[in-house]
Design a protein around this nucleic acid. Structure first.
Lengths: 143, 143
DNA sequence: CTCATTGCAAAGGATTTGCACTATA
DNA sequence: TATAGTGCAAATCCTTTGCAATGAG
């Protein structure tokens, strides 16, 4: 059914299944814009007014620990989250603030392993001005 | 003299020269362990008791904006800083907490530019267990 | 029944803001 | 003198913690 997908994700990692965790997973699966805790909390609270922000924090922590979701430190202000799919990088636009997925992998992992460190997480992010904002600027000033 | 190097860095970018900014630059130049604001503040306060943390924040912000230093979001807790040299990546050890420079560049920049985004900053970081912590563990358990 | 999870309120820590004071061009 | 920078205190925002209540195995 609706939540089967997420139930299986949790079962596979032997994490206890709770309605809150399922809702958070579903939200992250359907909102690939790297939401912050507060965005997730506010949205889910609409259908579940008793939801606590602490629970959102707790759930995100355990999901992240089990590598079902990914915690992204890119804004410098708050953590952002996405559900884990293939490895990819992130681009944050300094103008519109969006965080955009960049579908490339990191070719450096092998080199770092050779140094002797054990890699558990790979994060690549870029900051600048996104294509859309550049195009808007060109439109405004007439090419 | 002692600060000539840093004075020139600021002059080149037409940033006003202040004793605080010079001290911060010197500190970052001599401490390549990616300190947080509080570490910089506490250390510099020893020789300049009237130093304010706000000034450290302000200085780091303007130095970062002019790309003299680099602001690193990796711990998820606070921003870390380093003086900019060649482009490199970072590795954070989940055990000892150290942030280690990884002297490799990102080979993906060209691909992202082709998408149409304008890249202004490149951040690559890895998390895991560093070589030293792995070695210590092996020593403890006898190979 | 026991242990994990939830929810609430309070605390903690990093960063920002407002404002008066100081120093620089 | 006008402007930019400094320093202090208060405020703000994100996150964590303590604890009682609840729910699942």
């Amino acid at each position: 059914m609706m939540f089967e997908k997420y139930v299986n994700l949790l079962k596979k990692k032997s994490i206890q299944i709770t309605p809150q965790r399922l809702e958070i997973l579903k939200y992250l699966d359907n909102h690939r814009n790297h939401p912050a805790v507060d965005q997730i909390y506010k949205e889910l609270k609409r259908n579940n007014p008793s939801l606590s922000k602490t629970t959102v924090y707790n759930s995100l922590e355990i999901l992240n620990k089990h590598k079902i979701i990914n915690s992204i430190s890119i804004t410098g202000l708050e953590s952002r989250y996405d559900i884990i799919n293939e490895m990819h990088h992130h681009f944050m636009c300094k103008k519109c603030g969006r965080i955009i997925d960049i579908e490339i992998a990191c070719p450096n992992i092998k080199k770092i392993s050779e140094i002797g460190h054990k890699i558990e997480e790979v994060h690549g992010y870029f900051k600048g001005i996104c294509k859309e904002c550049i195009d808007k600027e060109i439109d405004k000033h007439g090419s």
